[in-house]
């Protein structure tokens, strides 16, 4: 690991002032410290955000929106009863990610900003345009099982690994940011970036900017009775998604009044298609409808290598997540969150 300076500012202003090119912000460290060990990242300075005051609360604001401070730990958000009751698929997605130990340490800000699990990025040695712009991409032509089938480019085919980000995208979350040029907000849809010719630019964050909070608009709670996250993995627990889907519905008088659908692990950002959601509105829930919506959500998908199977897998996952959402949010968190196993009543 490259040597680094360490500083622990006591305010957001101090943290931003401490930032210099080559520095990195530290949340729970569960992603950054790992990447520093492999050599994929080598910040000259770590600015530890975990002692910043006021960023560890979950609050319902006067306008009905819910604000999650960036330093709230993943496990504390998922196990917050009020939060989980209002946003069950967010809680389910968090609990389907990583392990209990990692969720205890990981911050929600760090979860959003975490880097791709592409092995060629992570190893610190392979050619990777995301790590070393312009050097090439060893993932292309390599093992592409975990790679993108949507929105990829010739310079990068990696996916974003966050489960949490997928329901946040479906629910139109807003990211609050502070930085050298003041504060601003970015809608979730624009927070993670598709690679294009600049895969090294992973998010909308400008140099020195900090995620201070994640906000869910008041309307997002309307989906509480019908929302599920479904995640396909190589093993039942403690594995990244092969593909995943967050599905949320409002059902009134037997018809869908509003629909949200976002897919995970298929692109460098959570994938949402407005047309796929719109075609469900006004219709009664049915397997045929959900299959059509899932097909629309995957329109334009193209294998980035030997991974054509992911396209059909994602379609089926999306359709099944919608069917589960239509069946209703379970009264209690399933023993195996977001799993295809152990949830017969909601299969």
């Amino acid at each position: 690991m490259r040597a680094f300076d360490y500083t622990r500012p006591a305010s957001i202003e101090e943290a931003v002032a401490a930032w210099t090119p080559g520095a990195a912000y530290l949340g729970g460290g569960t992603n950054l410290v790992d990447l520093m060990k492999t050599g994929a990242m080598g910040p000259a300075k770590l600015i530890d955000l975990t002692c910043l005051p006021g960023l560890d609360a979950i609050e319902v604001k006067g306008d009905g929106s819910t604000r999650i401070g960036a330093l709230v730990r993943n496990s504390d958000l998922a196990h917050n009863r009020d939060f989980a009751a209002r946003f069950p698929m967010v809680a389910e997605a968090i609990l389907a990610g990583a392990s209990a130990q990692l969720r205890n340490a990981a911050t929600v800000g760090g979860n959003l900003v975490q880097h791709t699990r592409c092995p060629f990025f992570q190893d610190g040695i392979s050619a990777c345009n995301r790590r070393d712009p312009g050097i090439g991409c060893d993932a292309i032509g390599g093992d592409t099982g975990s790679m993108a089938v949507l929105g990829w480019s010739q310079s990068c085919i990696a996916t974003h690994p966050s489960d949490f980000a997928v329901p946040l995208a479906a629910l139109d979350a807003v990211i609050e940011i502070a930085g050298p040029n003041g504060s601003r907000e970015v809608p979730m849809a624009e927070f993670h970036r598709l690679p294009g010719d600049t895969p090294e630019k992973e998010t909308a964050l400008e140099p020195g900017e900090i995620v201070t909070a994640i906000r869910l608009p008041a309307e997002a709670a309307a989906f509480a009775a019908h929302s599920r996250y479904l995640k396909l993995r190589e093993r039942t627990s403690f594995a990244f998604a092969l593909v995943s889907a967050a599905a949320a519905l409002v059902i009134e008088d037997g018809r869908i009044a509003a629909a949200r659908l976002a897919l995970g692990a298929v692109a460098a950002k959570p994938w949402r298609v407005a047309g796929a959601e719109a075609l469900m509105v006004g219709e009664p829930p049915s397997p045929e409808l959900f299959a059509r919506a899932a097909t629309a959500a995957m329109e334009g998908a193209m294998p980035s290598g030997d991974n054509a199977h992911k396209i059909e897998l994602a379609r089926r996952t999306a359709a099944r997540a919608l069917a589960r959402a239509a069946a209703g949010t379970p009264a209690e968190m399933p023993a195996l969150p977001a799993s295809v196993f152990g949830d017969p009543a909601h299969a």
């Binding site: 530290l26 460290g29 569960t30 209990a100 130990q101 990692l102 205890n104």
Partner: peptide, 19 residues
């Protein structure tokens, strides 16, 4: 490497001692 830090289980291998 699991230990309890302030009562919570975490992976000590990803926890920097300075923190």
């Amino acid at each position: 490497c699991t230990v309890l830090v302030d009562g919570r289980r975490v992976n000590s291998c990803l926890t920097l001692a300075v923190t």
